[in-house]
Simulated scan of single mutants.
Amino acid sequence: MTASTSTQQPRQNGQEQLLTPGEVAALFRVDPKTVTRWATAGRIGSIRTPGGHRRFRESEVRTLLAELTNDIPAS
C-alpha cells in the first residue's frame, strides 16, 4: 500500500470531500496551474486551508465537469 492520498477517502462527520488542484486537474485533464487560474478568475470555487493551500469541493467540481461534458455538441 502506498502513502499517497486518494480521492476516494470516506467523508468524515458529514463533511464534504475536498480535492487538491492536482486531483481536479486530473479530472479535467489539464495542468494544476490551469485549475489555480480558474479559481483566481472565479470560474470554480475554492477554499484555503490554514496553511494557505487551495482545496476544491468535490461536488462542485463534479457538477462543473458534468456541465462541461454535456455541452459538447454531437457530431
Rank of each mutant, 00 (worst) to 15 (best):
A3Y: 12
A3S: 11
S4I: 13
S4E: 12
S4A: 12
T5A: 12
T7L: 08
Q9R: 13
Q9S: 13
Q9P: 01
P10Q: 10
P10V: 10
R11G: 14
R11P: 09
Q12P: 04
Q12D: 12
N13H: 07
G14D: 06
Q15D: 15
Q15F: 12
Q15P: 02
E16I: 04
E16V: 07
Q17E: 08
L19D: 00
L19C: 02
T20F: 01
T20D: 03
P21F: 01
G22R: 10
V24E: 01
A25G: 03
A25T: 02
L27Y: 04
F28V: 01
P32L: 03
V35Q: 03
T36C: 06
T36F: 01
R37K: 08
R37V: 03
R37G: 01
A39D: 04
T40K: 11
A41H: 13
R43T: 00
R43L: 09
I44W: 00
S46V: 01
S46W: 02
S46N: 06
S46T: 05
I47A: 15
R48A: 15
R48S: 12
R48Q: 15
R48N: 10
T49Y: 05
G51H: 03
G51D: 03
H53V: 06
H53F: 10
H53S: 12
R54V: 00
R54A: 00
R55K: 07
R55I: 01
F56H: 11
F56Q: 06
F56A: 09
R57T: 01
R57E: 02
R57L: 04
E58V: 03
E58C: 06
S59D: 05
S59W: 00
E60P: 01
V61A: 02
R62Q: 14
R62S: 04
R62H: 12
T63L: 14
L65P: 05
L65E: 12
L65D: 08
A66F: 05
A66L: 11
A66H: 09
L68V: 06
L68N: 11
T69E: 06
N70G: 10
N70H: 08
N70P: 00
D71C: 03
D71T: 07
I72A: 10
I72N: 08
A74L: 13
S75W: 11
S75T: 14
